[in-house]
């Protein structure tokens, strides 16, 4: 139910509602939080940010779950990247300074997985944001109607579980 609700909302906001920037922002924050281990100071701050600023929650949730799964697959690679970056001789002075600041250790930047995945997330975040924003614009401009009329969507809409979901949703609305 939760999943159907999440996907349904996401498809709906793609078509109408929030601005493409807000949806892309929610998606990007979800991407960052999903890609990195959940328990860190920066993630908590990001979630607060997503709540306070006008970012789309459906996009955030979907991106969080999707990239959480991707992160699991890439876990060993993030660890290796984090390890090689954290042991770079030229950056030792910077890390040492950061390590000795109060609060900074609460970000767990010294953890190979946290650092590796965060670096990847930060590097890819702008690209994800712009790609998502442009994608939504393009979708609204020319693909939304085609998508709605497509056989795949008609098939999904025809599924019993989806029908049942719509009934429940409409009940909730009424």
């Amino acid at each position: 139910m939760f999943w159907l609700q999440l996907v349904s909302r996401f498809i709906r906001v793609l078509r109408e509602g929030d601005s493409p920037g807000a949806i892309a922002g929610g998606f990007t924050v979800g991407f960052i939080v999903g890609l990195t281990p959940f328990l860190s100071l920066q993630n908590i701050l990001l979630i607060l940010l997503a709540a306070v600023v006008r970012l789309n929650f459906a996009a955030f949730g979907l991106a969080y779950f999707f990239f959480g799964f991707i992160a699991y697959l890439f876990d060993p690679w993030f660890h290796s990247l984090g390890l090689s970056l954290l042991t770079l001789p030229s950056l030792q002075a910077f890390y040492t300074r950061l390590y000795n600041l109060p609060i900074a250790p609460l970000t767990r930047f010294y953890n190979t997985l946290v650092f590796g995945s965060t670096v990847v997330a930060i590097v890819l975040a702008p690209a994800i944001f712009f790609a998502a924003r442009e994608g939504i614009r393009a979708y609204r401009r020319s693909w939304a109607q085609k998508f709605q009329d497509s056989q795949a969507v008609r098939f999904v809409r025809g599924l019993k579980i989806v029908q049942w979901y719509f009934k429940v949703r409409d009940l909730e609305l009424s």
Partner: peptide
């Protein structure tokens, strides 16, 4: 393990903590 030149494989989702010199 860095000293031994080995690449350690921690359990998934855990990573390992790298220590740096501390002033405190």
């Amino acid at each position: 393990f860095a000293r031994a030149g080995k690449v350690q494989k921690p359990p998934r989702g855990k990573g390992i903590n790298v220590s740096f010199p501390v002033t405190e």
